[in-house]
Design a protein around this nucleic acid. Sequence first.
DNA 1: GTAAGTGCAAAACCTTTGCACGTCG
DNA 2: CGACGTGCAAAGGTTTTGCACTTAC
Lengths: 159, 159
Amino acid sequence: MPKQPNPESAVQSGAFKAFIAEKGLRATRQRMAVFEAARTIQGHYTAEDLLKKARSLDRSVSRATIYRALPLLVGSNVIREMDVGRDQKYYLAEAGSATFRAQLICENCDSIVEVDAPFMEWYGKAVAAKHGMRPLSQKLQVTASCLNDRCPRRKPARS
Amino acid sequence: MPKQPNPESAVQSGAFKAFIAEKGLRATRQRMAVFEAARTIQGHYTAEDLLKKARSLDRSVSRATIYRALPLLVGSNVIREMDVGRDQKYYLAEAGSATFRAQLICENCDSIVEVDAPFMEWYGKAVAAKHGMRPLSQKLQVTASCLNDRCPRRKPARS
DNA sequence: GTAAGTGCAAAACCTTTGCACGTCG
DNA sequence: CGACGTGCAAAGGTTTTGCACTTAC
């Protein structure tokens, strides 16, 4: 376990610090730990998952801080918030891909797979315009059930 | 205010009673009141809205009964459950149209407009199949904001 | 008669918030 | 230093549940 600094981390951390400063906020120890956790966790995670991971980086992070940091992380495009109809919200490190993505949600094993659906780009604009409204975002989710062993059980397979 | 029986209501009520009997359940006063309320309310409504309406038909209906009846109403296709990312779930009397519908959600005025999107029918099947899964349902929601006075404020305009 | 259904109130659950203390700049 | 951020615990708001009483069949 070498102590070498992670270059990618440094860069990203810098970008987040810039965002923080820009907004007149402070780069606290806890905030940076949550940030690091948020962009590091693989796949979809809940606020509770984020708390665990952040605490592994900085023991002092509290649940309240997690919930207070989440809007900042979403607002700065570090993560994306996702409501898939469960009781908790899910989050996902933003990969930076500009294409629209749908979610394929497995009822059996809780896995969520991100699926590129670039052709959906036009839909929201068309429908909203038709009703004289300004489109903000759209969401396409497919709920399905895995067939026996072909399901990507808890492994968010590549889209 | 004549006391004439409502023929449509009678028919529908009969169908629900059949469903109830079929399942070995009982057609209680409260259950029938909730049923009548659920299929009568116009537009999208919450559990609380349903409680109010049901109580206007039968004062004795309690909140618990509402929540216990909702799964039955959804299961018998009398209503459809909808999660539009707010804190409460929404319900809508099932119109019986077989076509797939998307939801156009206005951020400003809380209105939800059902929009026919028949071309989406194939999508869920295609994506699920591609991942070796059995498609169950899909959901397409567009969040938008009304432009000044052109918004169908609280009036779920015809799709 | 008897098991299913009901009302009430408490519990569960995730998320938000008030407050006093800590700490970044 | 002074305001912003934090931890803690309590509050909030919707939905669920345990329990004793009712009631449909």
